[in-house]
Amino acid sequence: MPTVHFTDAEGAVRDVQGNSGDSVMETAVRNGVPGIVAECGGSLSCATCHVFVRDDCLTQLPPMEDMEDEMLYGTAVDREDNSRLSCQLRLTDGLELFVTTPETQV
């Protein structure tokens, strides 16, 4: 089972097991991980599912499309090199992902 380790801005960690094919955002929201808002439910319209991906995990993820890239310029906490929108990140078998959620999403 894929696992996502969510660390919040204060450093508290929450490990959530997800299903292959689901997005990191869905995995977080359904289990009530507080750092992800995801107002638009994954339709790449809100940028409230922003996460920072631990550098060594970045290569396991698909490259971002232009739309995600542009949306990331409007996040509540400024983007960094390791920023992604978690609704665009799909879990795959055996994936172990470490992400940090920003202090605020809105």
């Binding site: 940028a47 739309m67 949306m71 409007g74």
Partner: peptide, 11 residues
């Protein structure tokens, strides 16, 4: 198809 504009105005 202009998220940068949207984000700029919203902010």
């Amino acid at each position: 198809n202009a998220p940068l504009d949207f984000m700029a105005v919203k902010n």
